[in-house]
Design a protein around this nucleic acid. Sequence first.
RNA 1: GCCCGCGUGGUGAAAUGGUAGACACAUGAGACUUAAAAUCUCCCGAUCGUAAGGUCGUGCCGGUUCAAGUCCGGCCGCGGGCACCA
Length: 902
Amino acid sequence: MSRYDPTIIEPKWQAIWDAAGTFTAVRDLSRPKYYVLEMFPYPSGRIHMGHVRNYTMGDVVARYKMAQGFSVLHPMGWDAFGMPAENAAMERGGHPKDWTYANIADMRAQMKPLGLSIDWSREFATCDPEYYGQQQSMFIDMMAAGLVYRKAAVVNWDPVDMTVLANEQVIDGKGWRSNAPVERRELTQWFFKISDYSAELLSALDGLTNWPEKVRLMQANWIGKSRGLQFAFTTTGAPDGFDRLDVYTTRPDTLLGASFAAISPDHPLAKHLERHDPAVAAFLVECRKGGTTAEAMETAEKIGMDTGIRVLHPFDNAVELPVYIANFVLMDYGTGAIFGCPAHDQRDFDFATKYGLPIPAVFVAEGAEDAALTEAYVPMKSERVHFMRGFAGAEFQTGEAAITAAIAHCESIGVGRGVTNYRLRDWGISRQRYWGCPIPVIHCDTCGVVPEAKENLPVRLPDDVTFDIPGNPLDRHPTWRNCTCPKCGAGARRETDTMDTFVDSSWYYARFTAPHATTPTVAEDAAYWMNVDQYIGGVEHAILHLLYSRFFARAMNKTGHLPASAIEPFNALFTQGMVTHGIYRSVTTKSATGPNDEAAMIITVKYHFPEEVEGVTDEGVTSFDKKEGIVGRAFLKSEVDELISVTPSLERNDAYSALRLEGTKVDVFSSAKMSKSKKNVVDPDKIIAAFGADTARWFVMSDSPPERDVEWTASGAEATHKHLSRVWALCDRIGSMPADHQGTGDADLVRASARAVHEVTQGIEGFAFNKAIAKLYEFTNTLSKANASSSAMKQAIRTLAQLMQPMTPHIAESIWAYQGGAGLCATAAWPVADPALLIADTMTLPIQINGKRRAEISVPVDMTVSEIEKLALADQDVVRFLAGQPIKKIIVVPGRIINVVV
RNA sequence: GCCCGCGUGGUGAAAUGGUAGACACAUGAGACUUAAAAUCUCCCGAUCGUAAGGUCGUGCCGGUUCAAGUCCGGCCGCGGGCACCA
């Protein structure tokens, strides 16, 4: 064997796997299947360390399962629609399609050197017409199943770019590109009826026991189940048809504290009044100002307007409450109308204070009940007041019992009924953009909205579009919109909205089971491969993508595209942490008016590339060598007095004082997610070129638990590479041993191997890759110090190669082949530890006296408790510490510890 | 405001209630070398002690237990998610 050179062995083994079709997934009914999936990437053009970590994790699982005899599906694809492609087209010309496919080619070329066990024959991009055509077909099926509808919805509208903006694209109430104030506009949009599944999506979370608790909780909160009372107020002075006003409340126990009612500006009653009352119309204009973003809502002032309409308190018709239109009442939650109880709700309190409304208290301190009620509350018939009295005090504070009783009471006197509401709203999927899946419907003057005929699918995006003017190119395309109505054959217009890209990613996992089929899925393939056994990705998708996918799987089941067993598509979910890296940051302050004018001080924060940073010591200035520049590390603070930024052109031998004048002081400022703006990105390409894929893979899996962030450090990467070189050298040494070499440590080595097999297996099974790697270090150290026969050493290092294979497949194959392993290491059966070898003959037991460790004894594993006790009490150190004190108690935990209590 | 998670050496971290700090990084000392790099060896929580060994130590305060990083209660700090949701 020569020197460890990943640039030679890595391409070699990748070519061999490729040629052998090692990772091609086959539907093999004689074997159990295992489907590993990592969240597919957006083709931005470059892979980053986060991708490396994500795909390596999946690869470890896939390779491990393959060695265990499973028929493994481990595919890769591209989440390829979306705005960045259109933005690129707008900024530098060109076509989104060309940009996207070029990026895919670049990223695939970057991913292949990682040696992932991916079945590339199943690769697809969501922008392939073969993919989005199937999506359109399912959309039509979903329309037929009543899961799709159109309605008017309020959106962020950018009047300059003439497009709808996502909330994230609205910054300080302005469009992120145009900088124009965003308007709230009501547009007719397409929706998926995800709310039909609110109850089921919530209750089924309980069954997802292999999902992180955190993700299940986040989804549960997002779905937002609440139990309350819905009832109708009787109105007075309201227009015809509005003699009742439905409200929903989760606090029926505070109903006695009602002080006003309020309706949403979008409530039918408000809209009715708007048409007849100019004052109301003016007020509604006021309400509609500002965006729909969270920030805009939070900062918006709570405003209301008295409509003059009154409602009667359901417990006492003598009490009249004013009806306000209030901008904080949402039309799409509950009934779009509320009652306000200022005494027990902060927002209602603020509102009541602002508009001078009474603040009657329902609950008062023990003993002060009568006084408080008569003083603060609008007069009410006493027997009705009485029903809540029983809940005053501690029992009441818990809420649950009081709410249940209040609902029961209200139902018994005919005031409304108990109702369950969900926060989850229907999924608006319309996007006024080009680079997305066209919504396959046609607008016909006679037939209305008609789905496109399936034989005309896919509805392809036209290629001849330009992005030189704002707006949706589909909308202004000269011919694309024109079509014939599939129903009556008359001239008609195509829908120009495209689907939210989250739709594309809501079913790709199912498509991987039959990626080239002419139907969305194929029953036998879906039945065999679904569900995804292990899904791996970032926690940032905890809600939207994972919730949409759960909905979509149900919709696909309803429309016959997935079996009922696949309505929860991901059996197990793992959310991995980010790869972070140190940041070099400088902070300068200067004042425009004078050095001491703090008010006018301007603070400038700048980030620096590692290669722009120099270390200053007494000796002068030190710099990176080339390798350090590549791997992204500069200096530890301890090595130098301070760090300064310099222009790269500055000579490194320049005088210390000169540099000091020109450079800005830089701090190594913690560690953050790699990003261009923080100038702390480490490029996987360069790491692979410098150290090899195995080093990159091993490093991102070691040290930190996979669910936590891991900091990329050059020293860590170098150390990993050194370790792999040591393993290589060890292999070389063992390989060159004489065949008849003998040693005394064979039995110990066999035990150590068994223990390594057991512990590494446990580590991988439990997603504790950092621990598995720690055990591999231990085993390597044991092996390199072992004094054993040549055959035992060879056997042990083959085992080491197998255990390393999921993490570092290339070096593992080389070792395996060199040491006479049969076939490929990747497909060799995973080693099994003989349980008998995991138990040692003797063990060391610590002895505690009153809980403090004072001695230890070595005993045979099968020694009885009474014998151990005797031995322990006879121990010299124990005798010394006891100093003749009487023993109160002695506790022997077999195999663990002895504790003597005096 | 509501919900959740996490606090262990200089650093990343281990530890079914049972020897706290496995494994690794960094630092330090040494070997080899004319020298450097590479490689190898040793030390590496704090403190007292020449040593043997002692004492303290898992954010803080208390509790349960023969035994607490781990379980319970209360604080403090950090991080994440949701938020006009009636």
